[in-house]
Structure formats: structure tokens, C-alpha cells
């Protein structure tokens, strides 16, 4: 159930137009995975910290960034939502097909996790606004969290907290970038960042 929900939220980020809705979807996805972590092996305190940061703090930060980077108009997508969905679905299906049974005992969660990492990459590739690309990074990381929850005995808390710290660092730095890009270009459309070519 959690795995399916997380995958649906991830696919929705690929197609929605509004940044606020996309942030809410990623927050909900983090919440679903975070709640599931409480039901598995591992430290409850660590699960609580991960849940608080990923489902509350990071979405709140991204909403603050969004408010400070008002878009004059919606950034047009390079491809329509159905094309994006079909492309990401095909790539995710291919990745799942090539992934063997990893041995967690929950094949559905394994496949959903791998698909979610691919969907995160697809969001970065297919969505032009900087904030959406940042959300793509978080979706990919949520895919890893989903798989980590399924590890028998749980992952070490050092890895979980370290990965969380790294994610928070990347999101904070990327938020600086998002604001700066908006200041420089007047929009967060990364398609305009294409001057460096050989």
C-alpha cells in the first residue's frame, strides 16, 4: 500500500503544473514512507527525525523558497503530461524488469523503490523549473528510503541520519541556487541556463 502510494505521488509530481501542489505531493510521499518506517525494524527516534525533516522541514523550506520566487507565468513544459508519464513509465518498467529479486521478502516494495528512483530522475530530466528538479532529487531519495525500510534488520542509523543530513544539505544549497537563478533570470526556468556549450 505504502509503496503504491509513494509511486503514485511520484508520478503525480511528473505531471502537475503548480509548484505548491508538487511540494505537497512530495511531502505526502515522505510522510507515507516515514510512517511505514515506524512499522519496521530500526530505531524509532531515527525514524521520527527522518519523518520530521523530510515530511515537514524540507517541504516548509521549499514552500518558503517558492513564495520568494514568484513565477510571472507557468513555465511551459518541453513535452505534454501524457508523454512525460509514458516516458517515465517505460523507463521505470525497463529498470524494474532488469532488477532481480533483491531478497527483502517484499518484492512489490523493491520494484516500487527502483521505479521511484527512475521517476525521480525522469522528473529532473522532464521538468524545467528549478524547484521541480529539486523535487525530483527528493523523489529519487524517497525511492531509496522505501528500499531502505525493507532491509531486514533495518539500515544502520548512521547511514540513515547521514543520508538525511546530506539530503538536507543538498536541498538547502539547491534552494540558494533556486533563488539566485530566479534573481538572475526572473524565472526558475532552467531551460534558459544553456549558454555553456562546446
Amino acid at each position: 500500500m505504502t509503496a503504491t502510494l509513494a509511486l503514485v505521488f511520484g508520478l503525480a509530481v511528473l505531471v502537475v503544473r503548480r509548484r505548491s501542489l508538487a511540494i505537497a505531493l512530495v511531502g505526502a510521499q515522505s510522510l507515507a514512507i516515514g510512517v511505514a518506517a515506524f512499522g519496521h525494524d530500526g530505531e524509532l527516534v531515527v525514524a521520527g527525525i527522518v519523518l520530521a525533516v523530510k515530511a515537514v522541514a524540507l517541504p516548509a523550506l521549499l514552500l518558503a523558497v517558492m513564495r520568494r520566487t514568484r513565477e510571472p507565468r507557468l513555465v511551459a513544459a518541453a513535452a505534454g503530461p501524457l508523454v512525460r508519464l509514458a516516458g517515465a513509465g517505460a523507463a521505470a518498467g525497463l529498470a524494474v524488469a532488469f532488477t532481480p529479486d533483491l531478497g527483502t521478502g517484499d518484492l512489490h516494495a523493491e520494484r516500487a523503490a527502483v521505479a521511484l528512483v527512475v521517476v525521480g530522475i525522469a522528473i529532473v530530466v522532464a521538468r524545467r523549473p528549478a524547484l521541480f528538479q529539486l523535487l525530483g532529487l527528493i523523489v529519487a531519495e524517497n525511492g531509496l528510503s522505501l528500499l531502505a525500510v525493507s532491509v531486514p534488520g533495518g539500515l544502520s542509523y548512521v547511514i540513515e541520519l547521514g543520508a538525511l543530513l546530506d539530503l538536507a544539505l543538498v536541498v538547502v544549497v539547491a534552494s540558494f541556487f533556486t533563488r539566485r537563478i530566479h534573481m538572475e533570470l526572473g524565472t526558475g526556468d532552467t531551460d534558459l541556463l544553456r549558454t555553456l556549450r562546446d
Binding site: 525521480g120 529532473v124 528538479q133 531509496l144 528500499l147 525493507s150 539500515l155 543520508a163 541556487f177 541556463l193
Partner: peptide
Amino acid sequence: LEAGWKYLVLTTLGLSVALLGIVILAI
């Protein structure tokens, strides 16, 4: 900014793929 953003996004995505491999090893 373009160079820094590209570096941040691409290397973070790449390292996510690497972490997927590490979690598979942990399993």
C-alpha cells in the same frame, strides 16, 4: 550558476544511483 546547478543536480542524481547499489549490498 548554470555550471553549479548542473554539477549539483547531476552528481546528486548519480550518487542516488550509487546509493541504490549500496542498499542492494546491505540487503
